[in-house]
Simulated assay, not measured.
Amino acid sequence: MKLTDLAIRALQPNAQAKKYFDGNGLYLEVTKAGSKYWRWKYRFEGREKRLALGVYPNVSLKEARLLQRKAADLLRKGTDPATLKQKQSPITFRQVAEEWLAKQHQWKQNHRRTVVGRLNNDIYDLLGDRPIEELQPIDFLQALRHIEARGAHVTAHKVKGICGQICRYAVASCIIPSDPTRDLKGALTPPKRNHFAAFTTKEEAGALMRVMKGYNGFFVTKCALLMTAYTFTRQGELRHAEWTEIDLSERLWIVPAHKMKMKREHMVPLSDQAMELLLELRKVSGRGKYLFPSLRTDEKPISENACNGALRRMGFTKEEMTAHGFRAMASSILNEAGYNPDVIEMQLAHVPGNKIRAAYNRAQYLPERYKLMQDWADMLDAFESQKS
């Protein structure tokens, strides 16, 4: 009895893979996971062989029968269809994506960097080198689940859209019969809007650190982002930081009052990681005024959008993470870890909330703050090493 589309759609996975025959050696193999693979069983030079014809529903029943007939024609002419297929290099998802990217002439450079960054960070490692004709909805869903696992739900939806555009380009180019991402509607977690636009879990912080450590853009901007992570200072204070404010012997950054939001001098203890970063940065900008000079001139600091722009190029949306969000990230994780809230608030340079704590002392809790900042940097390193 021949297969029908209705019968195929109704097939359910079993404890073991099961074959459903259509005729002339063509059959559909349903795996334990529910994937449906077209196969053709034939004999060549006395040996029984199998030929993969694609995956349902990417390859429909009608298309599978057509492919089987073409393979049978080759067999009648004395050619082994499997051998011929092996000689033909399959078109990978990466190849289609690169061709699609090359045709987007209307894009602005920042948008192009964002799209390329998302493909490099979240898709190519898992799907890039696989034949696009073999990719199923579950393959894309598993890749998107990796993004969701770090809490980046908005990015997951954005990446799904990018993959859909690439697959639809492949359909238009007659490479695949249909877009496998179209069946993922409703499969992803709806993104939550975060008022602070910050990652606030250990997993999110670890993923963020891994991506930032691998950033290959402007070195000074990369250092500014990492310094923001280690010190969780405000962007205005960080951008305008000067080498005269850094006391390397005391491992201390003293921010002058006129640069602070509350016009009070602020002390930032420097962790081992921050010190190492500053020593590397000094080789680049140590002769100038600013720690983080502009790419165009040493006389000005990096722009107010430099760090946020770098985060966008790494694939993080403004709804997920901002440069200011490092403060919320540190506060959330440190408070959850049980550190003294007064020490955390002092290091955040927040205004005391009652009269008892209103007597401001720039060095208040300083020994505890040294320990806090080193512990925080060590925590970030630990989160970074714990890949999901």
Rank of each mutant, 00 (worst) to 15 (best):
W100H: 10
G161I: 03
K19V: 10
F326M: 12
S294N: 13
M314V: 03
Q86A: 14
Q12Y: 01
Q88L: 12
L53E: 02
N308V: 10
M379E: 12
M227T: 07
D129I: 03
L208D: 00
D272C: 12
Q95N: 07
M212K: 04
F232C: 03
R113H: 15
M329R: 03
A330M: 12
A257V: 07
F292R: 01
G286C: 07
Y230F: 15
W100F: 15
P81I: 06
D342V: 08
K259V: 06
E320N: 04
D139R: 04
W243M: 09
L380C: 10
I175Q: 07
M262I: 09
R47T: 11
Q374G: 03
P81W: 05
V171K: 04
N121V: 01
F44T: 09
V211I: 14
L334Q: 11
I8V: 11
R313G: 13
A33E: 13
T4L: 05
M346T: 14
Y360S: 05
V159Y: 01
L141Y: 07
R327M: 08
L248A: 12
N361Q: 15
I356K: 11
E336M: 04
R145N: 11
A102H: 13
Y37H: 15
H153L: 15
R369S: 03
T31P: 00
P131C: 06
Y20E: 09
R362M: 13
N110C: 10
A207M: 06
T92P: 01
E63G: 00
E204Q: 15
Y42N: 01
Y27T: 02
R312H: 13
Q86L: 14
S285F: 09
A359L: 07
F93T: 01
R313P: 09
G325Q: 01
S173Q: 14
N120A: 12
A10H: 14
K261M: 03
C163D: 04
A274Y: 02
Q68D: 08
E63P: 05
L238V: 08
A97I: 05
S60G: 11
I132Y: 06
V115S: 08
N110D: 15
R94N: 12
L101G: 08
G117F: 10
Y27R: 12
R76T: 12
A149V: 00
M212C: 14
R193K: 15
S303R: 08
M262Q: 11
